[in-house]
């Protein structure tokens, strides 16, 4: 079987590709070939031994879906890909749109549709949560500086100012909010989301929806070490039923199809959980779920192939992941192959 995976950028803000591949490899599929799809010739996963058997450069979706599809078609002529798992937020809309065309050339995917992707977007999540009685921090959407004046009538400072796709700043006064508004709108566009700041600890859940409203599995994690970029560099599986139940409720309401990460904050004062974000793909820490007994990436492959699978019932509590960095030495010829030919093989 040939499985293509994106997101091999195992950098300080890692993509989920390498852990997704590790999970799939752990399942012991016979005659498995992993194909890494790369946006950058220096994505570490392409050079790591025992990750992808072959790697191909692909163009960014922002350059046009036709160009991306053409490139995948040409890779597919050579490789006959069975399943493709995109793992990066920015490419999911593109691959969700391309899913029917990929299916036509024999490539199966298991992805949320555009409507599902839109409902969980940062600017729409609060409305969804409000309608479904799920606690989420109140927000206002700002398209102009003038909109920022609403902050003082709606919330007390500090507030969280978030970009539509990525990044967030805590603003302690109007001037800081305006500075964050400028930075975020320059980088990510509009609207800017201004959210009530909730003081507390962050909790995460990785889960997999079967597309019919059922969660195939869900594993909660508490970060033990956080980098300057806010990424978990170590974390532990925990026993927290409430956030599993909320995640399953969202999967049920949205009939979520594919992997997801749910981000929560537990308000220190009230011990109440608020849903902060839903990321529409597995997180970079998904291998912890595999280590705790739920091989969600492999289950995703099975679902893509149309197999029926039994939901996971348990996971091990107290399993820890600790990420590390490692200098891999390789020859410039490898880099040259990827840069010039757009492909590299480890077979």
């Amino acid at each position: 079987m040939k499985i293509a995976v994106t997101g091999l950028n195992n950098v300080d803000n890692p993509g989920p590709g390498v852990p997704v591949i590790r999970g799939i490899k752990d399942a012991g599929i016979e005659n498995l070939k992993i194909i890494g799809l790369l946006y950058d010739a220096l994505e570490p996963g392409a050079y790591m031994p025992d990750v992808a058997d072959a790697n191909y450069m692909i163009p960014y979706p922002s350059g046009g879906l036709d160009i991306l599809l053409e490139r995948i078609k040409s890779i597919n002529e050579k490789e006959n890909i069975d399943v493709l798992i995109p793992t990066l937020d920015a490419e999911l809309y593109a691959f969700s749109k391309l899913a029917p065309e990929l299916e036509q050339i024999g490539i199966k995917t298991f992805l949320p549709n555009i409507e599902q992707l839109n409902i969980r977007a940062k600017d729409k999540l609060f409305k969804f949560c409000e309608e479904n009685n799920i606690a989420a921090p109140e927000n206002i959407l700002a398209n102009t500086y003038h909109d920022l004046y609403k902050i003082s009538s709606e919330f007390n400072y500090p507030v969280v100012v978030k970009g539509i796709f990525y990044d967030a700043y805590i603003a302690n006064n109007f001037d800081e909010a305006a500075a964050a508004f400028k930075k975020l709108s320059d980088k990510w566009g509009f609207p800017i989301i201004v959210q009530r700041f909730i003081k507390g600890d962050e909790y995460n859940v990785t889960a997999l929806g079967d597309g019919s409203g059922n969660a195939v599995g869900a594993v909660p994690m508490k970060k033990l070490y956080i980098t300057e970029k806010g990424k978990g560099w170590a974390g532990v599986t925990i026993d927290e039923r409430e956030i599993i139940d909320i995640s399953k409720k969202v999967i049920g309401k949205l009939e979520w199809k594919g992997g997801a990460e749910f981000e929560f904050i537990k308000e220190a004062e009230t011990n109440k959980f608020y849903l902060l974000e839903i990321n529409p793909r597995f997180p970079a820490w998904v291998y912890l779920a595999v280590g705790a007994g739920q091989n969600l990436p492999y289950a995703n492959v099975l679902l893509a192939l149309g197999r029926k699978i039994e939901p996971f019932k348990n996971y091990e509590i107290g399993k820890i992941f600790i990420r590390y960095s490692w200098d891999l030495i390789t020859d410039i010829k490898q880099f040259e192959k990827l840069t010039v030919k757009g492909e590299i093989s480890h077979e």
């Binding site: 600890d201 974390g235 925990i238 927290e240």
Partner: peptide, 8 residues
């Protein structure tokens, strides 16, 4: 001592 509900 490990607190299973909070990971602390």
């Amino acid at each position: 001592l490990f607190l299973p509900s909070t990971g602390e």
